[in-house]
């Protein structure tokens, strides 16, 4: 079941169309939102939160219409923005409780809940310090805590690991993974860091120029209808590439003496084909192994 969907959605800033006729579904679980600058990620999230009225098309988040039920959507959604956002003079407890009260929680409940989520996000020790004195990592955790305080069903996380040191990044990714798996919270992670998406997300949406370029589970996207093999030769050999082509395969990537060879799906005797091509071309194979596309390759292929 989709937690959010848009149908033939067109969004514009004045005369400039940012998203044109976009149709997509965000499935349950953890979804990565990928795309180069200007791809329309911002605009899509704005529209899903009800901040931007569509020119045409329709959409819903958790079953609520993005045109008419934006407050109901925001009641059930949490947002962790990319930029630093805090209110000077407040500490983490008061800021998080304030966010909870704005979501409708009674003060006592908001306060108790603020302590719980701050503890969960790893801010227990510093929760009474003024937020302007926080490190970048603590500010990121605080943004996550204020997004979680009212118990949203869907979280939008924008560059959640920005500015974090390796340890902090690891902890943040673990938190995201924990929230999005088995806690009943669906998560949309917008990030430029593909390893972060790969670590945390089950599904990926790739946007470019306001259109959907690729969509699917991470495993599906990384799989291909062809079989890929990385071959390491003793030295570069153009004749090997020709011999491989004659055998019905193709070299999709070449770096020095390393070749990525693509065979049709279900191809048999890959080793025999490689050795025959090497023998014919006079190349010397040092080794070969089956490989999968990385998410980065999927991304680059989708946006190229």
């Amino acid at each position: 079941m989709a937690v959010a969907e848009v149908r033939n959605l067109t969004l514009a800033y004045g005369p400039r169309t940012a998203i044109s006729d976009l149709t997509l579904e965000i499935p349950e679980g953890c979804t990565g939102l990928l795309g180069p600058n200007g791809a329309g990620k911002t605009t899509l999230i704005k529209a899903l939160l009800g901040f931007l009225k569509p020119v045409s098309g329709s959409g819903s988040v958790l079953g609520f219409d993005i045109r008419t039920e934006s407050l109901k959507i925001r009641q059930r959604v949490g947002l962790m923005p990319e930029v630093d956002c805090h209110i000077p003079g407040m500490n983490a407890v008061s800021l998080t409780a304030y966010a909870g009260e704005l979501a409708g929680m009674p003060f006592a409940h908001a306060l108790r809940r603020a302590h719980e989520v701050l503890e969960y996000c790893g801010l227990g020790e510093v929760r009474y310090r003024k937020v302007e004195t926080y490190s970048t990592g603590a500010k990121q955790r605080l943004k996550l805590a204020q997004a979680l305080v009212h118990g949203p069903s869907l979280l939008f996380l924008d560059e959640p690991t920005n500015g974090l040191d390796p340890e902090g990044r690891e902890e943040m990714l673990n938190l995201i993974r924990d929230i999005s798996h088995g806690k009943g919270v669906n998560v949309v992670v917008s990030s430029h860091l593909l390893p972060d998406i790969e670590r945390t997300c089950d599904h990926v949406l790739v946007l470019k120029d306001g259109t959907l370029r690729a969509q699917g589970s991470v495993a599906e996207l990384k799989n291909t209808s062809r079989t890929l093999v990385d071959v390491e030769l003793r030295e570069p050999c153009p004749a090997f590439v020709e011999e491989i082509s004659k055998a019905g395969a193709s070299v999709v990537h070449c770096s020095g003496s390393s070749y990525r060879v693509s065979f049709p799906a279900g191809a048999n005797s890959i080793g025999a084909v490689l050795f025959r091509a090497a023998k014919s071309s006079g190349a010397q194979i040092r080794g070969f192994r089956p490989t999968k596309r990385t998410l980065e390759e999927v991304f680059l292929e989708a946006v190229s």
Partner: peptide, 11 residues
């Protein structure tokens, strides 16, 4: 302080 980003994201 960009506080509107978190305030207006609430209902």
């Amino acid at each position: 302080a960009n506080a509107l980003q978190i305030l207006l994201a609430k209902p």
